[in-house]
Nucleic acid binder design. Structure first.
Lengths: 335, 335
DNA sequence: ATGAAAGCGCTAACAG
DNA sequence: CTGTTAGCGCTTTCAT
C-alpha cells in the first residue's frame, strides 16, 4: 500500500485539508503546520496521487499525441517540440502511433478521451475523413498536423510552402539552371499541400519563359525516388535537364542513390534539390541542398496553441512566424 | 459535463452497479437489463472514465517510458516495439525524453510514479548512479535499457555483443583483411558494454596472429567519427590498415564522410564496417556493412517482461533469443 | 440477478 | 488559519 494524504496528516498531526493546502499552496497555512507537514511528507516519501487529483479537478495534465510513425525523423522532431514545451507547463504526453491505419487513429482517439487527456495533437499522413468529422465535434482541444494534406476545417499549423518553393527556384535559377524537373508524388491534388508548391514551381518556370516539366510518382519515400530513377534519367536526357527538384527529401535521396548506383555524378552530371531537411540530408554525400521545415517548432507551436486555451494568456504567444530556410549544400552546383 | 455511469443507469432504468457489470462483464446480468444498458450507452455515447476506474482498481494501464532522445533512430525503434506490444495488451505509454540529463531522468521518474504507471522502461545513454539506486528500491516493475553501459544490478535485455563482434571479425578476416583498426569511444571501460566488444576484437586479431590496433575517441556521434578522420588516415598509412571497424554506425558514417570529403574511396581505398544498423546505414552510399541490433525486439521484449509480471503467464514468453545479424553491404570489399 | 452503500485519494466549499 | 464534509466516477462487497 502506498502512502496517502491521510498518513501524512496523521503523522503531522493536522487534517488532510491542511496537507492538501501545503502541497498545492492553495491557501495560507501557518508556518508551524507547514513545517510539520513538509517533514511528514519527507519522512514518508509521500507523492500525491495524480489519478485521484485528476478525478476531482478534471485536469489530467496529459496531452494525447497520435502520430503516424514515431520512427520517422520529422515526426520525432515534432514530438520533441511538443514534449519540451509541454514539460515547461507541467504537461506530459501520452503517445500512440497509427502507422497509417485509419482504424488505429480512431481507436487511439477514443482511448485518449477516456484517459481524460486535456488536448490532442494528431500528426497524420493520411486523409482520414471519419476522423476529421469526429474531431470536429469533439470538445477536446486539438491540433491537426499533416505534412501532405490540407484540412481547411481543422486547426493546424501551416507554413508558407509556396514561398519556400519559390525561394528554392530563385536560387536554382540564379545559379544558372533553366530546365528544372520537378519530381513529386501524385495525390488528390485539391486536398494536397503539394498543390501550392507545384503552382509556385510553375510560376517560377514561367517567369523565366520556360515550360514546367513535372513528373509525378505514387510515393514520397526513398524507394519511390529510387524507382523513378530510370525514367527521370530519360527525362534528363530528352529535355536537357540540369536540376531535379524533389518535393520531398526522401525522393531526392532515393534518386541520388539511383544515380550513385548508375554512375551518374551529383552534382557534376546533374544537380538535385530536396524539400524538408530530414536528418540524412546533411549526412549523405553529397550533402543535399534543400528547404528546412521547422518540425521542432511546429510541434512547439502546436502545443502552445492548446496550452493557451487550457491555461490562458500566460503562454507566450510570440506569434512566431515559422522560419522556413533554404539550406545550400553540395548537391546543387552553379552552371 | 460529460456523460457518466449515472446518466446511463437513469436512462436504462437500472442501478449503476448493473451498468458497471455490463461494461466490465464482471457478473451475470439478465439479457433484458443488458440490452437496455447497451442501448443507453449507445444513445448517450458513453465512455467510461478511466481516471475514476484507475482510482479504484489501482490499474492505470499506463507504462512510463523515459528515453534519452526520441529523435534517435534506435530509440524510436525501441519505443515502437514497446508501443506495439503494449497496445496488444491494452497498455498505453506515457513518454518523456531526458536528453542526457540526470536531473530530468529523475524528475520523470518521480512524475511517472505519481501518475500511477504500472511499469517503467528506461532507455538511457548515461550512467546515472542516483537513478540506479532509486530504481532498485522502487516497487514498480521496470526495465533498464542502456546501449553503452552495463548495469548488473538492474533488470535489462542484453545481447551477445561479443559474439556479434566476433561475427564481423570472422567475416572481415574471411575476406582477406588482416590489419583491422578498431575505432571506439573511450569510456569508463569497466561499466561499459564496449568492454566485451573490444575483447572479442582482440581475440579475433590474436587468433590470426596479429596485434590489435585500437583508436579510442571521446564520442559516439557522427561528428566524432568525422573528427577522428585525419588521425585514422595516418594510422591507415603507418599500419597498412585495410579495414576500419567502428564500434558504432555513427562513427562509421562520420568517418566515411571524412573520406568522401578528402577523396578517399570506400571501399576501394579502405573498407569500413559499423555496428548497429541505424537507418542511414542502408541509405548512405556506399551502403554500410554492419551488425544489426534488433532494437524493435528489444523494446518488445522489455515490455513483455513487465507485462508478464503485471498480468502473469498469459504473455507468451517465447524466450526469444534476440537475433543479432551481420549485414553485408558495400562498404567492405574482398581483398 | 440486482440495488444500496462504502470507499479509492484527493480537492474545495463551508463553517468555525 | 484549520477541520469537517461532500463529492469526483467508478468498482465491489453485502444484502436482498
Amino acid at each position: 500500500m502506498s502512502v496517502t494524504i491521510k498518513d501524512v496528516a496523521k503523522l503531522a498531526g493536522v487534517s488532510i485539508s491542511t496537507v492538501s493546502r501545503v502541497i498545492n499552496d492553495s491557501k495560507p497555512v501557518s508556518p508551524e503546520a507547514r513545517r510539520k507537514v513538509l517533514h511528514a511528507i519527507d519522512e514518508l516519501g509521500y507523492e500525491p496521487n495524480q489519478v485521484a487529483r485528476s478525478l476531482v479537478t478534471k485536469k489530467s495534465n496529459l496531452i494525447g499525441v497520435i502520430v503516424d510513425d514515431i520512427g520517422n525523423y520529422y515526426v520525432s522532431q515534432i514530438v520533441r517540440g511538443i514534449e519540451e514545451i509541454g514539460r515547461m507547463y507541467n504537461y506530459d504526453i501520452i503517445l500512440g502511433s497509427s502507422y497509417g491505419s485509419e482504424e488505429t487513429e480512431m481507436k487511439y482517439l477514443q482511448l485518449l478521451r477516456t484517459k481524460q487527456v486535456e488536448g490532442i495533437i494528431l500528426v497524420s499522413e493520411i486523409m482520414n475523413k471519419n476522423l476529421v468529422e469526429y474531431l470536429e465535434d469533439l470538445k477536446i482541444e486539438f491540433v491537426y498536423l499533416n505534412r501532405y494534406y490540407n484540412t481547411l476545417k481543422l486547426p493546424t499549423i501551416s507554413l508558407d510552402n509556396g514561398k519556400a518553393t519559390g525561394m528554392m527556384m530563385d536560387y536554382l535559377i540564379e545559379l544558372g539552371h533553366k530546365n528544372i524537373l520537378y519530381l513529386t508524388q501524385e495525390e488528390d491534388i485539391e486536398l494536397t499541400i503539394e498543390k501550392v508548391k507545384i503552382d509556385a514551381y510553375k510560376n517560377a518556370m514561367k517567369s523565366i519563359g520556360n515550360t514546367p516539366i513535372i513528373h509525378k510518382i505514387n510515393s514520397h519515400r526513398i524507394k519511390g525516388g529510387y524507382d523513378a530513377g530510370a525514367y527521370v534519367k530519360e527525362l534528363i536526357d530528352t529535355h536537357n535537364i540540369s536540376t531535379v527538384f524533389c518535393s520531398q527529401d526522401e525522393l531526392a535521396i532515393g534518386l541520388m542513390n539511383y544515380f550513385y548506383d548508375n554512375d551518374i555524378k551529383v552534382p557534376e552530371d546533374i544537380s538535385v534539390a530536396g524539400y524538408g531537411d530530414i536528418s540524412v540530408a546533411a549526412i549523405y554525400r553529397p550533402t543535399l541542398t534543400t528547404i528546412r521545415e521547422p518540425y521542432y517548432d511546429i510541434g512547439a507551436v502546436a502545443i502552445r496553441k492548446i496550452l493557451k486555451k487550457l491555461i490562458g494568456e500566460s503562454i507566450d504567444d510570440e506569434n512566431i512566424t515559422l522560419p522556413i530556410r533554404l539550406i545550400k549544400r553540395e548537391s546543387v552546383k552553379r552552371i
